[in-house]
Write a protein that binds this DNA or RNA. Structure first.
Lengths: 195, 195
DNA sequence: CTCCAATCGCAACCGGGGTAGCGTTAGCGT
DNA sequence: ACGCTAACGCTACCCCGGTTGCGATTGGAG
């Protein structure tokens, strides 16, 4: 699937240059301002080449998402489920506050909302994230902090959902306290055996 | 602000035709496919007129959102907070399943993610929704079903957030059971005094 | 009924994103 | 080292969303 005929040399350089340019453009202009032409100029790769290999703006996004999926992120291990879950939700919140990471992440969400390919790629991304994050819940169950018949991924979803909801749906600010409260709410539900 | 010099007659006809055409286009093509040109042709209003009064695609969206905000929606009153909260979340879920309403709502979210004006308009919309929905929580508090020192709007947010999160962020399907579980989780958190 | 300004329709234009055909470069197997 | 061909660069072109200037229509006050 991923085995091209010429994976190394110039092709690899072109690929990296375009990917880097895509991310830089997303930081500066966001998804609405992302255009193949700009990416081509910034990367030094010719416009037609980008069109041939990535097809369109959506292709660029999907490719960038593919990369982001593989990068693991620092799951907290504070010793208690409260601390871990709060840590995860704060990680999400601060991620979107970050001047470098925020615009890119936002662009991914924006792209996925209106493009099926990007949506699939982002879905894969979140499947991986949920799986990684659920580890803190599994540990809590092993420690006896939580009942054992719960959907570990759902706890993560319920914990982070309010942050995303505020950011991308209701368009409200998200304070540190809001994030903690979201984590606590998910935890309370898990303890009550609802999840 | 909204008092034009000529609110009636031809201007009013033009306004209604464009609004209706905008919604129809959103249903058929969604936000990415929404263009002033198509709206103009469908409505029978000339292209330049649409540009003059609405400015751009974003203006059309914001105008449509303005209308949607004023429409109240049927808040359930089942007698118990479980039933009411579940009802609200199911209302959200089925709303996006609806072949007529779904695409328009989705388009609103998509537009708001990448346009500041639409984001503001959608924010206003959700402020209104939260306020209306919080009534079921207030009733529950009055009935003694919930502790009284809670943020009534936050209960609603936590309840519906997982549905939106699945739909627009993680891009996962949302089953009827998922929706109920989200409502139950918010309820458990409220009972625990977290919200 | 009359007038005038607000509003709309029209045709021509513009600019940039996206495409097509073709020549050039350089991976990579031998 | 050599040659084949995948992959890239270049030019020219098209298409269509968006803009502009001006003349035609019509709401609504008096």
């Amino acid at each position: 699937m991923e085995s091209s005929k010429r994976p190394g040399g110039r092709s690899a350089r072109v690929r990296d240059a375009v990917r880097q340019a895509t991310l830089a453009e997303l930081v500066e202009r966001g998804y609405p301002g992302l255009t193949v032409e700009n990416v081509a100029e910034r990367s030094g790769v010719h416009k037609t080449t980008v069109y041939r290999r990535w097809g369109s703006v959506e292709g660029l996004i999907s490719d960038a998402l593919e990369l982001a999926k593989d990068e693991p992120w620092p799951i907290p291990d504070t010793g208690s489920i409260e601390g871990d879950l709060r840590g995860i939700v704060q990680l999400v919140r601060t991620g979107f506050d970050d001047p470098e990471l925020g615009p890119v992440s936002t662009a991914f969400v924006a792209a996925a909302v209106q493009n099926p390919d990007a949506a699939r790629a982002l879905h894969e991304f979140f499947v991986a994230r949920h799986e990684q994050s659920a580890e803190v819940v599994r540990r809590a169950v092993a420690r006896g902090e939580l009942p054992d018949v719960i959907d570990v991924r759902e706890v993560v979803r319920v914990a982070v959902a309010p942050v995303y909801y505020r950011l991308f749906v209701a368009h409200e600010p998200v304070s540190e306290r809001d994030a903690d409260r979201a984590a606590d709410a998910a935890l309370a539900a898990a303890r009550a055996g609802v999840l």
